[in-house]
């Protein structure tokens, strides 16, 4: 039975692809259209670099949220990147292949746990521990960093593993045959050859950390202020949008879209860094 024929199939596929892409483009355009005019009217530097966020008085400075996002993300990287890369090195270079076969899919499964579950664990387990042992409200920058650091682990580990495994076996053999130990081989040859892939894994983890919303709202406390310690309650850019969108109107609504524009631009920059790094890895061979 030939209902469509070769050409028909091609048209249908093209239409599907086209509508998917245009839906994404439309969303991007919509956000820019709603947010950009506001940014220019309010003033780019007023919007980005003032600290007053009081929608009732028409004050929309997102500097505290920018700083909070930066700190939460940096903190998450400081936890997630070293742990993730070290885990990837252990699994590829030291653990028996059988262990890797079991653990890698398990770690990738962790990526599919909904973020509300991570947030829930943060609220129930992590925040009380922080409150008890370090002081402060518990729901804090520190809690956000730890939860996000854990959430980016699957991204960092699994992409790092792939790029380490892509390093030709003969490099390792050559190094070992010259009397190098496993660790010397790992850091002088394997990690150097896999460097761009590992960088990409960290940058993609960074993107995930900046964009994460639900878990951060649940554990970071959400007060608008520039954090002066890791135990302060903070509100990130994503949290700001999610918390206020349900009742925002007029200027306030536009200011939230403008916040979205800022996030959008940051993520685009990070993703292009990551894809350049990945492309460099491919051309390298």
């Amino acid at each position: 039975m030939r209902i469509f024929g070769e050409n028909g199939v091609r048209r249908i596929l093209m239409l599907t692809a086209f509508s998917a892409i245009s839906a994404l483009l439309l969303i991007a355009l919509f956000i820019l259209n709603e947010g950009l005019p506001f940014i220019f009217r309010y003033g780019v530097s007023n919007f980005l670099f003032t600290s007053e966020w009081i929608p009732a008085k028409g004050l929309f400075g997102i500097f505290p949220m920018i700083m909070s996002s930066i700190w939460v993300t940096l903190g998450a990287m400081m936890i997630g990147a070293p742990l993730g890369v070290a885990g990837a090195i252990f699994l590829t270079e030291y653990a028996p292949p059988a262990v890797m076969k079991i653990i890698k899919p398990t770690i990738e499964l962790l990526a599919s746990i909904p973020s509300v579950v991570y947030g829930f664990i943060g609220v129930m387990v992590l925040a009380p521990i922080i409150r008890e042992y370090f002081g402060g409200p518990g729901l804090s920058l520190l809690a956000g960093c730890i939860i996000l650091g854990i959430m980016i682990l699957p991204t960092v580990i699994s992409i790092s593993i792939d790029s380490i495994l892509a390093v030709p076996r003969s490099y390792r053999e050559g190094s070992l045959a010259l009397g190098a130990t496993t660790w010397q081989t790992t850091h002088m040859v394997t990690l150097k050859a896999a460097r761009s892939g590992i960088v990409a894994s960290i940058v993609l983890g960074l993107g995930r950390a900046i964009g994460e919303t639900m878990a951060v709202i649940m554990v970071a406390g959400n007060s608008v202020n520039i954090p002066s310690s890791a135990l302060d309650s903070v509100r990130t850019l994503t949290a700001n949008i999610a918390l206020e969108m349900s009742y925002a109107t007029g200027m306030h609504r536009q200011a939230l879209f403008a916040t979205g524009v800022v996030l959008f631009i940051v993520i685009i920059i990070l993703n292009s860094i990551a894809s350049t790094a990945i492309r460099k890895r491919k051309t390298y061979k």
């Binding site: 490099y171 009397g179 190098a180």
Partner: peptide
């Protein structure tokens, strides 16, 4: 032992570094 007994493989694979670094690696 591997420092005392060197090996050259069938497929020549220099390490991904300069000629100089390849020679002095060991």
């Amino acid at each position: 032992l591997r420092k005392k007994i060197g090996i050259v493989f069938a497929m020549p694979v220099p390490l991904p570094m300069s000629i100089y670094e390849n020679v002095v690696y060991g």
